[in-house]
């Protein structure tokens, strides 16, 4: 599979989950495991442009596909979504942040003009237990502005 543009070829246990491949084989620790049941969104990655829970995907199943993790979002410098999250203070403990940013990226890559309703919907599968969501929504709106100006 290709993670953040880098190709990985490995013989693996067919039951290995994608999150375990990302963290233990590719050694990319930005993808977090929260509930491990597809409820919290901490393990969100983007596969072929769509946000998915990597705890519910078998690594063997995405053989040959392109996967983006949080490490692939910034290229040389922080992505505008990351900048915006920092600027508005949308990060507290940070555990949900990678998943939150990837859900946001999946949305804004498709629809830069997303409405507040669409923004809320897009992060509805990502739980945050400390920040509250309002400030993240502000961050996402700020990211929209930044991306439009780019």
């Amino acid at each position: 599979m290709i993670i953040n543009g880098k190709s990985y070829t490995k013989k693996i246990d067919p039951l290995l989950r994608l999150i375990d491949f990302i963290r233990d084989e590719a050694k990319l620790k930005g993808t977090k495991e929260g509930c491990g049941e597809g409820e919290c969104g901490a393990c969100t990655v983007i596969i072929d442009g769509r946000a998915v829970n990597s705890c519910l995907v078998l690594a063997a199943s995405v053989n040959g596909k392109e996967i983006t993790t949080i490490e692939g979002v910034s290229q040389g410098k922080l992505h505008p979504i990351q900048e915006a999250f920092i600027e508005v203070g949308a990060v507290q403990c940070g555990y949900c942040t990678p998943g939150m940013i990837l859900s946001t990226k999946a949305l804004l890559d498709k629809n830069i003009d997303a409405t507040e309703e669409e923004i809320k919907e897009s992060i509805s599968g990502n739980l945050c237990r400390c920040t509250g969501y309002q400030i993240m929504i502000e961050g996402i709106k700020k990211a929209q502005d930044k991306l439009k100006k780019r």
């Binding site: 769509r50 519910l56 897009s122």
Partner: peptide, 9 residues
Amino acid sequence: MGSPQIRNM
């Protein structure tokens, strides 16, 4: 149904 991530899968 579910969340955006679940609906994608």
